[in-house]
């Protein structure tokens, strides 16, 4: 019988879940590009709607980049738990004896690596199309990387809550966007300062504070939400 096999430790379990989600994602690379394509399309609509003049576009660039990034990240959040819930693997996570908070945190990290980070890396390139000077690129990347991480953590709660709800996708945005307002405010301000070439440490600290808050509280709420959503 197999009770002789040694029990698995929590770091191993977390790593396995992270590895599984990354492997799964790269089995369907098409899906990985969707949020990025969505991000590009939205960002490139603004010049068409507003003006081709780079001068004026630079003015709205922070807002455009951040709102487009948040929406693109939210798009992918809807499937964070939904697929696993449908094929029954999420239930097995809840019954594994490992802390569900940890396993879902690992999934959220995977989600950020697969959507948040790529969006942050891509943002500066789109920023150039909005007249953003080159020296602002690292600032934009850093702010967005941090901001999307916090959004993934907060969004995971909404993803869990809307698991068992009708029309979950729309509801997820309604639940998550109000909670993402602080991220948007600090993030857009950091990007604005980066574009102006000024020091953007201030808002970055505030973004970091939100990230730490998200890191500590959000996974607990997400686990509770998923446990309720699984019923």
């Amino acid at each position: 019988m197999n009770r002789s096999l040694p029990p698995s430790s929590w770091p191993v379990a977390g790593r396995l879940v992270l590895e599984r989600d990354l492997r799964l994602a790269f089995r369907r690379p098409g899906q990985l590009l969707q949020p990025l394509a969505f991000f590009a399309v939205i960002t490139l609509l603004f010049p068409l709607a507003l003006t081709p003049e780079l001068e004026r576009l630079r003015e709205v660039a922070p807002g455009v980049l951040w709102i487009s990034a948040l929406l693109s990240s939210l798009l992918a959040l809807d499937f964070l738990f939904r697929d696993d819930a449908q094929d029954g693997t999420l239930e097995q996570f809840a019954l594994s004896g490992q802390s569900l908070t940890l396993l879902l945190f690992a999934k959220t990290v995977a989600h950020w690596l697969l959507t948040g980070l790529p969006l942050a890396v891509m943002a500066p390139l789109l920023g150039v199309a909005l007249g953003v000077p080159l020296q602002a690129l690292p600032g934009i990347l850093a702010a967005l990387a941090l901001g999307t991480a916090t959004l993934s953590l907060v969004g995971a709660i909404g993803a869990g809550l809307t698991l068992g709800a009708r029309r979950g996708g729309v509801l997820l945005s309604l639940l998550t966007l109000p909670l993402a307002v602080p991220i948007l405010i600090f993030g857009a301000r950091a990007t604005e300062l980066a574009i102006k070439g000024a020091g953007y440490a201030g808002p970055m600290y505030l973004l970091a504070a939100l990230a730490v808050l998200g890191l500590t509280l959000a996974p607990l709420a997400a686990a509770a939400a998923v446990r309720i959503g699984l019923e």
């Binding site: 809550l161 068992g164 709800a165 009708r166 509801l171 639940l175 109000p178 709420a221 939400a225 309720i228």
Partner: peptide
């Protein structure tokens, strides 16, 4: 509106109670 939307989205009262409770606390 988010709270009320979530409550409306879940049929089972007991589950809606618990899910919206998490949302209210967050």
């Amino acid at each position: 509106l988010g709270y009320m939307g979530l409550r409306a989205g879940i049929e089972d009262t007991a589950r809606a109670d618990r899910a919206s409770a998490v949302l209210a606390i967050v």
